[in-house]
Design a protein around this nucleic acid. Structure first.
Lengths: 241, 241
DNA sequence: TGCATTCATTGATCTGGATCAAAGACCATT
DNA sequence: AATGGTCTTTGATCCAGATCAATGAATGCA
């Protein structure tokens, strides 16, 4: 369960800590390693806040609203650190999108250790505000952007995180379904599909199979992602050619 | 500009630090005190990330989307700590809602100091994830809740933060306008007004003048705030009586 | 290799909330 | 206490995206 050198390597990569230090060792004692197949709910203790570090794979963190709908709060990939609250009015559920490995810490002890180790603290003080800002950007998108703009923003965001440049184009192998994309952007799968269709017709993207999307004009996508709902009243109402 | 004892008192209240310490003194040297009249934009250096601590009053932090609309990312009251990014695709603007006083620190130096002082670091490791979670709850509301539910959530949230119990009722003296509420909840002032009207008709609230709202049935409001958009398909479509 | 099941796309219709448009209430100033 | 400007409420209409309803791939498995 605990491969010492792998743990240390991870801690160095994640927080810039020198391996074998006291903090590193103490963190290892409170860490749990989870290996999840595709589409599994991470078995987390819901009575305490947790910190998860994704070492391999991809996950979604979602709030289960009543009924059959969920709002995905964030997607996470290898190297990402995730704060998972236990309280709050909603239940948070982390689910693997592909085969995934992650380390889980009880938040209280994790932050106790981090407070005592300035290198780690400093690293977290970069990461936490960044996570907050990503969440704020998401709130702006959900509150003020049209479906088309949200999807354009999603694609450009994914391009930065998991895109592979292939010549002029950027290739995305998305681990999440249309349902996931919809649940993340606050819209239905039908709307996701329709907007992708519009972008396809406009020559901005190609879709290959269910999971691959090729971005042919990221510049235009970024432009379309940037404008607010009732922004300029001059341009026509939709983007279809 | 720098009242030493006031600064120390604030640092103790905000981060539990003993006054007069080295970190406290060093933070004081990089702090700027701002006093803002009602409705003023905080004059912040946009080239660096900033940390603001509200010592008195109330503010809104908004993203200026193109055009005439803004998305309010959060409201802040005395005691709150605000992270204000400089980068990102949008411009963040902090505006006072009433007469307000705040301390502003350059984020980099602020976190450098915090990393070295475990008491302060520990305090921030409580606050930052909490801020992230509040933002996540906002994202859930914007992505999955109806206008009625968002407003109910707003009122119950405000009740916790600034509400005063008066007998059975909770009295809110809101410092923000209907426009601000709309910009926070991703809806128009007309919709805000109509939903308040519906709650008024249902006997849940009373409005007195522009800024006072009396919550008569916080239990029912909380219930209405909790359900997701397409939750249970059995109940009727709207909440009006 | 074909079948089955799940996932994605496309079409038709409906609706919550936006937009457009007055009217009414509040507050500051004189 | 009257006035003017701002903010809020209310009403009428419109539209982006949800919902309802098939149809059409893609992937997994026998």
């Amino acid at each position: 369960m605990n491969n010492h050198s792998a743990f240390d390597t991870f801690m160095r990569a994640a927080f810039g800590m020198e391996p074998g230090g006291k903090t590193c060792n103490q963190l290892e004692t409170i860490a749990t390693t989870l290996s999840l197949d595709r589409g599994k709910i991470a078995p987390l203790d819901r009575s305490i806040d947790q910190i998860a570090c994704i070492t391999r794979g991809a996950t979604k963190l979602a709030v289960h609203a009543s009924g059959d709908r969920e709002q995905i709060v964030a997607f996470h990939f290898a190297g990402d650190i995730v704060s998972i609250p236990s309280d709050g009015s909603h239940i948070y559920v982390m689910t693997s999108l592909v085969e995934t490995e992650l380390l889980v810490f009880p938040a209280r002890e994790f932050f106790d250790q981090a407070s005592a180790e300035s290198t780690m603290a400093r690293s977290l003080f970069d990461r936490l505000p960044a996570a907050l800002n990503r969440c704020r950007e998401k709130a702006v998108a959900l509150g003020r952007m049209s479906a088309h703009e949200r999807l354009a923003g999603f694609l450009t965001g994914m391009a930065e995180r998991v895109g592979k440049r292939v010549g002029e184009r950027i290739v995305l192998n998305l681990p999440m379904s249309r349902q996931d994309i919809g649940d993340s952007l606050g819209m239905t799968i039908e709307t996701v599909s329709r907007q992708l269709g519009a972008m396809r017709k406009a020559g901005l993207i190609e879709t290959r199979g269910r999971s691959q999307i090729v971005l042919r004009d990221i510049r235009e996508l970024a432009k379309r992602a940037g404008h607010a709902k009732q922004a300029n009243k001059k341009p026509p109402k939709n983007f279809e050619i």
